[in-house]
C-alpha cells in the first residue's frame, strides 16, 4: 500500500533522512520508533506529499505522491505533529471544512462528522471553540480530522502525545482495531506503544532505518542478545581478540585492565546459541584463568538506545 524507495530529504544540503526504504502492506500497522530529530516527521511529510523528497520515490496505493499528488492524497488521512487546527472555529465547523476539502459528498457530511467525532470521543464537543479546548482535546480533534472520509491510509505523527492515560489506552485500542482495515504508519518515542499497537516496527536514527521487524522479533532478538562480563587473568588485548573470535560475539569491550587481570564485556548478537560455554572455553584453552562470568539480558530500552545512539549506554551523562 505504501512504498518508500531510497527516500532522501535534505534541508539546505544537510540530510534529515538518508536513503530510507520500506514498504507497508495493506491493513498493516507500522510503527516508526526513534529519538528526537531522527527524521520521523520528515519521512511522514514525504509520504503525505507535504515535503517533496530530494531524491527517491514514494507511492501510496500505487500513486506516486509527487507525480499524481491528488490521487495519492485522496487515500491518506494525516495527523501532523502539531494538529492543524483553526483556533477560531468550532469543532464541528472545522471538521465540516475538512470533510468538504477532502471531497466528502454533501449528503454524507452529517453522518461522517458524527462518525469521526464518536471515534475520537469528542461527540459532545461539536459546538466548542477550538481555541478554548485543552491540549488533549485538541489532539483528539486532530485525530478526528485525520479520520474524515475514512481514508485507507493513515499517517499519524505521535498520535498519543498530550493525551491522558485513559485516552492513550483508548487510542491504542482504536489503532489496534484498525488492523486489516486501514494501513497505518505511526511514529512514537514510546516503546510499549509500538509493542501494543504495531505489526511491524522500523527503528530510525539519524535519518536512517537501523532495524525493521515485528515487535516479537525485536523482543526475541533482545532476549537472546546478552551482555556477559568476564573477569580473566590474561593480557586485555589478547583476551579481547580471543573472545571476539567466538562465533556469535558481536562486540568485546575492555572495561578494566590491570597487570595480568582484565575485565571484559562481551556482547552476543541474537543468534540464539548460548555463547557462555564457548567463551569460557576460549579463555581456558589458552591457559588463562577465569575468575568470574556474569551474564545479563538486555532490556528493550537498552536495545533501543543501542540501536539509536553511538555512545555506550550508562556512560557519563553529558553536562
Amino acid at each position: 500500500m505504501i512504498q518508500v524507495e531510497n527516500l532522501t530529504k535534505k534541508f539546505n544540503g544537510t540530510p534529515a533522512v538518508s536513503d530510507v526504504s520500506f514498504s507497508v502492506e495493506e491493513g498493516e500497522v507500522l510503527g516508526f520508533l526513534g529519538p528526537n530529530g531522527a527524521g520521523k516527521t520528515t519521512t511522514m511529510r514525504a509520504i503525505t506529499g507535504f515535503l517533496p523528497a530530494t531524491s527517491g520515490r514514494v507511492t501510496v496505493g500505487g500513486f506516486d505522491v509527487f507525480a499524481s499528488p491528488i490521487e495519492a492524497r485522496r487515500r491518506i488521512g494525516y495527523l501532523p505533529e502539531h494538529p492543524p487546527l483553526y483556533a477560531e472555529m468550532t469543532v464541528a465547523g472545522y471538521l465540516r471544512f475538512v470533510a468538504r476539502i477532502k471531497g466528502v459528498p454533501s449528503s454524507d457530511l452529517g453522518f461522517e462528522l458524527d462518525r469521526v467525532m464518536e471515534t475520537a470521543r469528542i461527540d459532545h464537543m461539536g459546538g466548542r471553540i477550538i481555541s478554548r479546548l485543552s491540549r488533549g482535546y485538541r489532539q483528539r480533534v486532530g485525530l478526528a480530522q485525520a479520520l474524515v472520509g475514512d481514508p485507507p491510509v493513515l499517517i499519524l505523527d505521535e498520535p498519543t502525545v498530550g493525551l491522558d492515560p485513559k485516552q492513550i489506552h483508548e487510542v491504542r485500542e482504536l489503532i489496534r482495531s484498525w488492523k486489516g482495515r486501514h494501513t497505518v504508519v505511526l511514529s512514537t518515542h514510546i516503546l510499549p506503544e509500538v509493542e501494543q499497537t504495531c505489526h511491524r516496527v522500523a527503528i530510525i536514527a539519524r535519518g536512517r532505518i537501523v532495524a525493521v521487524g515485528t515487535p516479537a522479533h525485536l523482543v526475541e532478538r533482545l532476549e537472546r542478545a546478552a551482555r556477559i562480563v568476564m573477569d580473566v587473568a590474561a593480557p586485555a588485548g589478547e583476551a579481547a581478540a580471543a573472545l571476539g573470535g567466538v562465533p556469535g560475539v558481536a562486540d568485546v569491550r575492555v572495561l578494566d585492565a590491570s597487570d595480568e587481570r582484565a575485565r571484559l564485556e562481551v556482547e552476543a548478537a541474537g543468534v540464539g546459541a548460548d555463547v557462555e560455554p564457548e567463551l569460557a572455553r576460549a579463555i581456558v584453552e589458552r591457559g588463562w584463568g577465569l575468575f568470574g562470568m556474569q551474564s545479563s539480558t538486555m532490556s528493550l530500552e537498552d536495545i533501543f538506545l543501542e540501536l539509536t545512539t553511538d555512545e555506550p549506554p550508562g556512560g557519563e551523562a553529558a553536562s
Binding site: G49, F50, I70, R73, R74, P80, P84, V98, K102, Q145
Partner: peptide, 14 residues
C-alpha cells in the same frame, strides 16, 4: 504560523 498549511497542502486540493 498555525501549521494549518500542512492540512491544506496535504488535502486533495491543487
Amino acid at each position: 504560523k498555525r501549521g494549518t498549511i500542512e492540512l491544506l497542502l496535504t488535502a486533495p486540493v491543487t
